[in-house]
């Protein structure tokens, strides 16, 4: 046997013990670190983007898409249905409007009021919004419809949080 690779019994034991000890230390430290940093690593509930529709299905006419988001109410976690009115404007930009009426929170519908075509209409108190979500003066709502944050990835539309106009 050559002298170059000679490992003494003492060295061998040292190496092995350091290695095993290192693994054990890592094994106990890792969970502790995770606990310490967990709140930073975790996504804020409700901010995850959800795939809602194929971009090719989006036309210039507002269309309703339904999806579900996870919500946490105290200790009760559930999936809550949401919907969005999605269309492309003249510039080809995607607009995703929240259907929640800014008056008292009913769900608005597109083009259901025969006297005022091509507007969003709230059946509760006859609130109206134009196609881009602007509230029609003289009807109960005082603010435009919220817009969803969105992104497009691999031909799919992802929606995030609905935000008041100007913030999204």
């Amino acid at each position: 046997m050559s002298d170059k690779h000679r490992v003494t019994r003492r060295q061998f034991l040292n190496y092995t013990l350091t290695g095993v000890g290192g693994f054990m230390a890592a094994g106990t430290l890792m969970p502790m670190l995770r606990f310490a940093f967990d709140p930073i690593l975790k996504d804020e509930a409700g901010t995850e983007m959800v795939a809602v529709a194929d971009v090719k299905d989006i036309t210039t006419e507002p269309k309703r898409f339904d999806f579900k988001v996870k919500v946490k109410d105290a200790w009760y976690e559930s999936e809550e249905p949401r919907s969005a009115w999605v269309y492309k404007n003249e510039k080809g930009e995607i607009i995703a409007l929240s259907p929640i009426c800014k008056h008292l929170g009913c769900t608005v519908d597109w083009n259901t009021d025969k006297e005022h075509p091509n507007q969003f209409f709230c059946p509760c108190h006859y609130g109206r919004y134009t196609k881009d979500g602007t509230n029609v003066p003289g009807t109960p709502p005082q603010a435009p419809l919220d817009r969803y944050e969105y992104k497009v990835k691999d031909g799919k539309l992802y929606l995030g949080k609905a935000k008041p106009r100007g913030e999204a």
Binding site: P81, L104, G105, C106, T107, P123, C124, H125
Partner: peptide
């Protein structure tokens, strides 16, 4: 579900 859609009046 109805309450969700018409919560401003119902």
């Amino acid at each position: 579900e109805l309450e969700r859609q018409l919560k401003g009046r119902v």
